[in-house]
């Protein structure tokens, strides 16, 4: 039991913690509240709680303001990109982690150098390239760009994990006659599920929120991903705060759900590699 004066001494600290928590979580609660109020109500009293819960706003946003299109575009582009980068990344990571070959160092360096490349070095050329191959303003084009942008990080995380799988398992499999691909499929992948799961979540969150590539490489309104769609809406309906708030919630909710379920995984995955 702590002596009472310990609590007094801690009061400034506790106030600070409370304050920072309000600062961090407050804005989200505010947006959530605004998403259920009409714009008129909001301008009358911006910070009140919703008197009447206007759930229909979500339906409106979905159907009338094109949010459903944006949402599905994001789902398709991000979903396919995550699927592809996971498979490709796992194969690459497995190869780099388990096999020794002369070009290994170079390949590793090359793939991981993608991690430090600023997007500005790529966007203008990608713009040209996608135009040339008729992939500009298409979801497949965007998805491919996304795969490339996340490949380095995925390989980095997975390689570290795969390298720790004990060699004995692979020796045993080889003696049992499995081919290289079967070994990958039957050993590395099942055992690597936790790490793969982490990269899936991280990639999904990063790409769902991705803005720069989308803004450069997409122009058609019905090809826009969700962040772009919201920005576009912000541009043309700046004053419709209520609808914007609802749109923001549509973007926030998937992430918030994943976070609620997998907060530990996400926290650890995102900070992996930065802790030394």
């Amino acid at each position: 039991m702590r002596p009472w004066f310990d609590y007094i001494r801690r009061t400034p600290l506790l106030l600070f913690l409370l304050g920072y928590t309000v600062l961090t979580g407050g804005p989200f609660l505010w947006v959530a509240s605004m998403s259920l109020r009409t714009t008129a109500e909001i301008f009358a009293d911006p910070y009140a709680l919703p008197g009447h819960l206007h759930w229909e706003k979500f339906a409106d946003a979905w159907m009338q303001s094109n949010y459903s299109t944006y949402f599905w575009n994001s789902t398709i582009a991000v979903g396919s990109a995550v699927a592809i980068v996971t498979v490709v990344g796992a194969m690459t990571a497995h190869c780099l982690a388990r096999y020794q070959f002369r070009a290994r160092r170079i390949v590793r360096f090359v793939i991981l150098s993608g991690l430090v490349l600023p997007p500005q070095m790529l966007i203008l050329s990608l713009f040209q390239i996608l135009l040339d191959y008729h992939l500009y303003d298409t979801l497949p084009g965007l998805a491919l760009v996304y795969v490339a942008s996340q490949l380095g990080m995925t390989v980095y995380l997975l390689e570290g994990f795969f390298a720790q799988i004990p060699q004995d398992l692979f020796d045993a499999a080889r003696m049992d006659g499995y081919s290289d691909f079967e070994i990958f499929w039957r050993i590395t992948l099942p055992i690597g599920v936790p790490a793969i799961f982490t990269t899936v979540i991280l990639n999904f969150v990063t790409l769902w929120n991705e803005f720069l590539y989308a803004v450069v490489l997409m122009t058609d309104d019905d090809k826009r991903t969700l962040p772009l769609g919201i920005m576009h809406f912000m541009g043309s309906h700046q004053l419709d705060v209520g609808m914007l708030a609802t749109g923001l919630m549509i973007a926030i909710i998937p992430i918030a759900l994943i976070y609620a379920l997998f907060s530990e995984t996400m926290i650890r995955g995102m900070s992996a590699g930065a802790v030394r």
Binding site: G89, F101, G114, V155, Q167, D180
Partner: peptide
């Protein structure tokens, strides 16, 4: 870990990544 697999295997595992990398990172 010193296993040196045949080139075909290496190619299978690395080709997709290398292609993506070359096409969408190195070339740009």
């Amino acid at each position: 870990d010193g296993w040196r697999p045949p080139i075909a295997t290496l190619a299978l595992f690395l080709a997709p990544a290398i292609l993506v990398y070359v096409g969408f990172t190195a070339y740009p």
